[in-house]
Amino acid sequence: MFEAIAFYTFSILVIGMFGIVVFSKNALYAMSALAGGMIFISGFFFLLDADFLGVVQIVVYTGAVMALYAFGMMFFDSTRDVKENIKFKKIIYTLSVLSAIFTIFILMAPIFSTKIEAIYPTLQGVGNVQMIGLILFTKYLVPFEVAAIMLLAAMIAGIVLVKVKMEETPTNIEVARGEK
């Protein structure tokens, strides 16, 4: 009962938040709504006994990603709204709904057809974080390390890209070097 109440509450909240993100004209509102939506999503993770994911969701998304967006927005003139002339609204909605329905259909298809056997079943009497750690550092060690390298590369890329001075776009730099 509690589960159902929580699920529906969170659902409404998340959908509402994301609705604001998508339809709001103000970038600042949108960002705030997104941050809120992220936190509510972590609620689903806790409901689904994925404590670790919930924590990561809050820390990474709300803490890091949204902070990054916030910083990013400072660069842009957020007071000046981007004029958005949107065409083909019906097409957009039809397409989105269709793709969502199809995706769900495909996701659910195996449930009706064959039984899926768990490759890495949840262990009894072990905490979620411990389980994740066990699997992540044994079976998924290599992808984990690769992800780490990817994050490092992304960080370096972000720093380099933003660091370039106003006048010196990467192409300009190359041109300048070539001239010298």
Binding site: I92, S99, F102, T103, I106
Partner: peptide
């Protein structure tokens, strides 16, 4: 992006 989604929808429909 719109065309991409159209393609996705078509492919999904085909798959189903």
């Amino acid at each position: 992006l719109r065309w991409m989604i159209v393609g996705t929808v078509v492919l999904l429909a085909l798959a189903i």
